[in-house]
């Protein structure tokens, strides 16, 4: 029976030793994992802070938000500048068009003059025929006047042709300038709205993420602190193992059948040692909630 009691105590001791080893290993691994997690959380937090800084107006440096909106404004400014210049060109084209119309009016007058000159030349020819021999020299003049009228008409045709070319060039330039001047501005309004909206949303997400990361960080800290109680657990286990070992020795003495006085003295000494253990390595903490780890 004594042997069975001692064996049971030894098994208990062995189990407790293994438990202590397992707890120590597990806690070491957990600590390493939590510390890595803490590092990652800190890194993520730092990255998020750089995003927040770049989104905000950071001192004199313009933030991402400001820079993007500034870009939209610059784009709009460019569009307005191009429209203004194009409208100026179109205005100028209208004035030039007016001058070209005046040239056409002058060509009309040249046509009128040519028609009248031709009519005079024809009358002169009739008169020279009527005058007979004496009108022969006038016939030459009349022919010359007719030739001049024809030349005037041809000149008028050339002017009209040139004016027509000029008109079509003006129209092409007008169309090009019109294409540059007229742009729909709705996209600029929508882009600005979309950018501001997206940046605001990004800011909200960023804030939420930062809050979450701060919470995760705090939780990891709590977990690491809680894991430090492993020392206490180990201490308790060691204490229990020591007691069991003493108990085993005592049982050996008690159940060994010896009734000698020195045996009785040895038993009393072991009992005292066991009592002494109550004051050694005692862990007063009953729960991890009670605060920080007490070092002993």
């Amino acid at each position: 029976m004594g042997e069975a009691f001692r064996t049971a105590l030894e098994v208990c001791c062995g189990n407790l030793e293994r438990a202590r080893g397992l707890v120590t290993d597990a806690v070491a691994q957990l600590l390493a994992s939590f510390l890595s997690l803490r590092k990652l959380v800190d890194h993520q937090h730092a990255v998020l802070l750089t995003i927040t800084d770049s989104l905000r107006q950071n001192g004199k440096t313009e933030g991402f938000t400001g820079a993007t909106i500034h870009l939209v404004h610059e784009f709009v400014e460019q569009v307005v500048r191009v429209s203004h210049e194009s409208m100026r060109i179109i205005d100028q084209l209208h004035t030039t068009g007016g001058h070209v119309d005046t040239i056409v009016e002058h060509a009309d007058k040249i046509d009128d003059l040519a028609r009248e000159t031709r009519f005079i030349a024809m009358n002169a020819r009739i008169e020279t025929q009527r005058a007979g021999e004496s009108g022969r020299t006038f016939k030459v003049v009349a022919e010359e006047v007719k030739r001049l009228a024809k030349a005037s008409s041809e000149l008028s045709v050339r002017i009209r042709r040139e004016v027509s070319e000029c008109h079509s060039s003006l129209q092409t330039t007008h169309r090009t300038a019109a294409g540059l001047a007229g742009h729909d501005m709705t996209s600029a309004i929508e882009s600005r709205g979309a950018i501001v909206g997206a940046i605001e949303k990004l800011g909200e997400v960023n804030t939420t993420l930062q809050e979450t990361l701060v919470s995760v960080g705090a939780m990891v800290d709590d977990a690491v602190r809680a894991l430090q109680f492993e020392d206490m657990v180990t201490q308790l286990l060691v204490d229990t193992i020591n007691r069991l070992r003493k108990l085993s020795l005592m049982s050996n003495e008690m159940l060994g059948g010896s009734r000698r006085d020195d045996d009785a003295q040895q038993l009393a000494a072991l009992s005292l040692e066991l009592k002494g253990l109550s004051h050694l390595g005692s862990v007063s903490q009953a729960s991890v909630d009670h605060g920080s780890v007490e070092l002993f």
Partner: peptide, 15 residues
Amino acid sequence: YIDSAALGMLLLLRD
């Protein structure tokens, strides 16, 4: 509705 040509015309008016 206005487009950029309208803005250009307003600047012409200012000129």
